[in-house]
Nucleic acid binder design. Structure first.
Lengths: 335, 335
DNA sequence: TTGTATCGTGTAATGGTTTACACGATAATA
DNA sequence: TATTATCGTGTAAACCATTACACGATACAA
């Protein structure tokens, strides 16, 4: 059942059927009724592939996620989807598992017009690749800053700086960092924030305290183990993910140490994991929903006007204090 | 840059270019080389929309998830993706938020040939709708049983029965159920397993102990609170999700009760949440990765042969005992 | 030599929709 | 009445790739 069949049954032309379907007002009431009747009767649904081919628009946006293990993405996604659907776009998702090959495979959807734009988190590809793509189709980055393409993110350096400073305020001198292990820009920024905070407070950076740690409970657990075996174990651990923080805390508990008393722990993202854990976890909260919305608005801008300038939207983070750190008043916490 | 441009530059026809691209062996080495040269030079990428229109195949599969909050889906998805990619399919995901309207919007992708098949978890639509769809395009269900379409799942009644029986073995007489709140088939099955286990052991089912509880930490927390306020609070809580179990445990801790001693708690799914929590959580483990793989094989079967029979694959679950229940030997645990 | 098979290549139809343009009819204006 | 504008409708091209079919050339057998 295609538009031609409908046209024949409604005794009119495909053009008119198309007009009716797309709510073009320049159709007589009589014919419109007839067409709608036939559509109803036959259950005709326009073939969107044909439509996309003709219009060079798909009405779909692609979100590339490195993983869906981290519930942080769920909030962001809700922001994206919500705004997208208001604007008439469907949101589809693909998971890259941080593999550049997989990422490229899905980006083909964009370069072949199967989706109208892409929101990427940490791209697995090189900066050049990203820049290159951005010339072929609208791309924006979310949650990580970029100089190549428009992005919506928090100030990771500052967020990390403040969290570290808060740990210093609590009296910690030996602060470990479970840093992101993928070498992405936002990870480096967070490491830098940590370093600056130490240096600004007259402390040396101890390489032994900086450990790459994957997004997983077990890796947080193991990394914490490693740290606690050091001759001078840290008295605080700043992690890149709430889940790593949970793993670290679990290890502390196993070792008979009390999180928030013997060792302070801070997570990152502000997912439900940080609120749920026992003890609950101090965390650097990202405004996921708002970031998603912002990223989407940047993307739409780029879709509507491909030559628009590269823009960066920086949103405020928030240090949420919980049981996993000794409670003293926090440093100021917004951008 | 389309296939015609390439043909002109390579001084041949579109048909031949198409053959080269699709690795048809019936092309002279000479022309093949020339075409590949031009392709390389121009960076030509076949327009997949055009291709899909012509071939009526997209090479894409759609996975409909109710949410990505539950990390259980991550494992399943890995199973799906892994097998799909081996078979040359891309996997795209859409989130329905359990909203039938959203679900329908994405199912249009399938009925308009933008994807070749759909894997759904708990469909938000009615059984009739699902049956209806299954006549229009290949659909399989994953993680929940169905009589309408092929499915891969565990025996939920049995899994729930065994978990409940285990709680009984531990000496519990007052066992609460935080049941899934959406009224889906798998939720009913789990409730039935719970009921049967009680009845088979000579206990009455107490409606006050059966509480609908959403997939969320806070809902588990609140439901547990409600239960503990009962004149005769339960001594064990069986929940539908690991996250709800975590919420319930957190509440118990707040009340000064010791999970696994004062009150036993069992979760469902076997996600990292159950392993990570402190205390860690006894859970009914689903073989997520395998379920995903199985669902995919069913889907491919349906794609290759739309008239193939409706099939059901039942995989074995496993009761994993952890700190949140008193440790006694478990009941047998496999299908 | 004639006929047949094989091989590489090109022509043109096809998939389903949108839309610029043209056409005829009607209404409004001069 | 003649002219113009307006409106609804249809025709046909366009989007891009695939593929059935046909064609010509070559090789081989009869």
């Amino acid at each position: 059942m295609n538009i031609r069949d409908v046209a024949v049954l409604a005794e009119t032309s495909t053009a008119t059927v198309s007009r009716v379907i797309n709510e073009d007002p320049h159709v007589s009431e009589e014919i419109r009724k007839k067409v709608l009747e036939v559509v109803e009767l036959t259950g005709y649904k326009p073939n969107l592939v044909g439509k996309a081919l003709r219009t060079q628009k798909s009405g779909k946006l692609l979100v590339l996620l490195p993983t869906i293990q981290n519930p942080y993405y769920s909030r962001v996604l809700q922001g994206v989807e919500q705004s997208a659907s208001v604007q008439g776009y469907d949101t589809i998702i693909a998971i890259t598992h941080r593999d550049p090959e997989i990422e490229k495979r899905y980006l083909i959807l964009a370069s072949t017009k199967q989706v109208d734009g892409v929101i990427t988190f940490t791209s697995a590809c090189s900066d050049e690749d990203v820049l290159n793509y951005s010339h072929q189709f609208p791309v924006v980055q979310c949650g990580a800053s970029s100089t190549m393409v428009s992005c919506a993110c928090i100030d990771n350096v500052k967020a990390s700086y403040e969290a570290t400073e808060y740990l210093l305020h609590l009296g910690n001198k030996r602060i470990a960092l479970l840093k992101g292990p993928y070498g992405r820009a936002y990870e480096v920024e967070r490491e830098n924030g940590y370093r600056y905070a130490l240096l600004d407070n007259g402390l040396q950076v101890n390489q032994a305290y900086i450990v790459p740690c994957d997004y997983s409970y077990t890796d947080g657990f193991d990394c914490c183990d490693e740290l606690m075996k050091l001759p001078e174990p840290p008295t605080a651990i700043f992690t890149s993910y709430d889940l790593s923080a949970a793993g670290a805390i679990k290890k502390l508990l196993k070792l008979g140490l009390v999180p928030g008393k013997d060792v302070d722990v801070i997570g990152f993202d502000g997912t439900y994991i940080s609120a749920m854990y026992s003890p609950d976890i101090t965390t650097v909260e990202q405004p996921g929903y708002e970031l998603g919305k912002a990223a989407l608005s940047l993307l739409l801008e780029k879709i509507d006007n491909p030559d628009s300038m590269v823009k960066k939207i920086i949103m405020s983070h928030k240090l949420t204090i919980r049981e996993s750190t000794k409670s003293l008043p926090p440093a100021e916490s917004t951008v």
